[in-house]
């Protein structure tokens, strides 16, 4: 069961990565990141169950808290970005690249 959970978690993680890279919409990108964290959590819970030790659950609890703080930052990021460019297209934000140098 543990391995199944872990494999599922790896798959979700990969899907998250794919989403993160492939999508231009920053909100979707953000959700992909959240998916990454959830994937890790899923494994941790499984490990916890397997070990019959709730430490891993604590860890995932903490990760959820971290995710929450990331969420706070991302929310403000959306605000800042949208305020500046009225768009949440990741491709638009490239003035720092060499194209404009």
């Amino acid at each position: 069961m543990l391995k199944a959970y872990m494999i599922l978690s790896i798959l979700l993680f990969s899907i998250g990565v794919v989403g993160l890279i492939s999508r231009r919409n920053i909100i979707v990108i953000y959700m992909s990141i959240e998916l990454l964290l959830n994937a890790v959590n899923l494994s941790l819970i499984a490990i916890s169950a397997d070990m019959a030790d709730s430490s891993a659950q604590v860890m995932s609890l903490i990760i959820i808290a971290i995710a929450a703080s990331e969420a706070a930052l991302f929310m403000s990021l959306f605000v800042v970005l949208f305020r500046n460019r009225a768009s949440l297209d990741a491709n638009l934000f490239d003035i720092l690249g060499n194209k404009h140098a």
Binding site: F13, G16, V17, L20, I26, I29, I33, L36, L37, V40, E70, L73, F74, L77, V80, L81, N84, A90, F93, D94, I95, L96
Partner: peptide, 18 residues
């Protein structure tokens, strides 16, 4: 510029953190 830097840093930082 700063916002964009923030965006990139945050996004990639979170990505790498995962």
């Amino acid at each position: 510029k700063a916002s964009e830097a923030f965006f990139k840093y945050l996004l990639l930082g979170s990505f790498s953190a995962s």
